[in-house]
């Protein structure tokens, strides 16, 4: 398996990358860590005319703390973020989910923004972004905009990004007081694509559950604080509404059951977590 021929531009600055995207439009693909794009190229599922490499752009290499959030630019590798001191305090959900992303060997190269751009419906990084109500920061040569994560993912590997836009950064809201977080996933083996992944965010008024691997995009739903059979009913309704499909890895019925079981587990863990950090 070899990629079809393409030209290659190694951008040294954001302007160079944005100029290249403006010039080549849908003929171009951005490459950062390459851990999602290279398999697509090798299998010739995509045949861009030009790759724009953004990994040498110094301005995109460092996470930037903002008030109530961590902004993670396009050049930040997953392994670098996972090693960031204080990640488990600031972004407990991401700290729990990142070890499930591929393997040590792929996290060493892969970036967070790259996973968001790829928009695999079972991927953990987009799931956490949706669960935490984060944002995707898009930039083209003459405009920039922020898109809510829930609006950004529009289908199976389809996003709001226009052809001339670069995902400059993703913005993950950091831990809020009195809020708890939990993540769980079921896959065939650790490092495989998730059959179902669940992320929960719970505070004193609301429970939020985000599910990956079932619908064509990571999907979240907010519930009031529920228990017992009311919670079972709510989870069951959510599981059915996600429209689970059947494939080689799992039946639709198994996926719905995982949504109910994992959903209950992460909501309960997140609720415990929220009580702990309130006291």
């Amino acid at each position: 398996m070899k990629p079809a021929p393409f030209g290659y531009l190694r951008a040294d600055s954001l302007d160079q990358a944005l100029d290249a995207l403006a010039r080549h439009g849908d003929e171009a693909r951005v490459v950062a860590g390459g851990q999602s794009l290279l398999p697509m190229l090798n299998m010739r599922l995509t045949k861009p005319a030009v790759l724009v490499d953004v990994m040498r752009i110094q301005a995109l290499r460092e996470p930037v703390p903002e008030r109530g959030a961590l902004v993670i630019p396009a050049g930040v590798r997953q392994a670098i973020l996972l090693d960031r001191p204080g990640l488990a305090d600031d972004l407990p959900l991401l700290a729990a989910a990142l070890p499930w992303v591929g393997h040590v060997q792929t996290r060493a190269r892969g970036t967070l923004c790259g996973s968001v751009a790829h928009a695999d419906p079972s991927a953990e990084i987009p799931l956490c972004l949706v669960a935490l109500e984060g944002e995707v920061r898009l930039r083209a040569r003459k405009r920039r905009r922020s898109v809510r994560a829930e609006d950004f993912f529009t289908g199976m590997m389809v996003t709001e990004r226009a052809d001339d836009e670069l995902i400059e950064a993703v913005r993950y809201p950091t831990r809020a007081a009195g809020t708890g977080y939990a993540f769980a996933e079921v896959g065939r083996r650790h490092g495989d694509f998730a059959i179902v992944a669940c992320a929960a965010v719970v505070d004193a008024r609301r429970m939020r559950l985000a599910v990956g691997g079932v619908a064509d995009r990571p999907t979240a739903r907010d519930f009031p604080l529920l228990d017992g059979s009311a919670l079972d009913d709510a989870l069951n309704a959510f599981a059915w509404d996600l429209g689970a499909g059947e494939d080689l890895h799992a039946t639709a019925r198994y996926r719905r059951d995982l949504v109910r079981q994992l959903g209950r587990r992460v909501l309960s863990e997140a609720r415990q977590d929220s009580l702990r950090c309130r006291s």
């Binding site: 290659y8 851990q35 090798n42 591929g102 190269r109």
Partner: peptide, 29 residues
């Protein structure tokens, strides 16, 4: 496998283990 799953091609790039099959040669300048 040439799509990053099997790990047979793993090498160290700048001190960290990485899949050579998911790395463009022009990218390791």
């Amino acid at each position: 496998c040439e799509h990053g799953v099997c790990g047979a091609c793993t090498v160290a790039i700048d001190g960290v283990p990485a899949r050579a099959c998911l790395t463009l040669a022009v990218g390791v300048e």
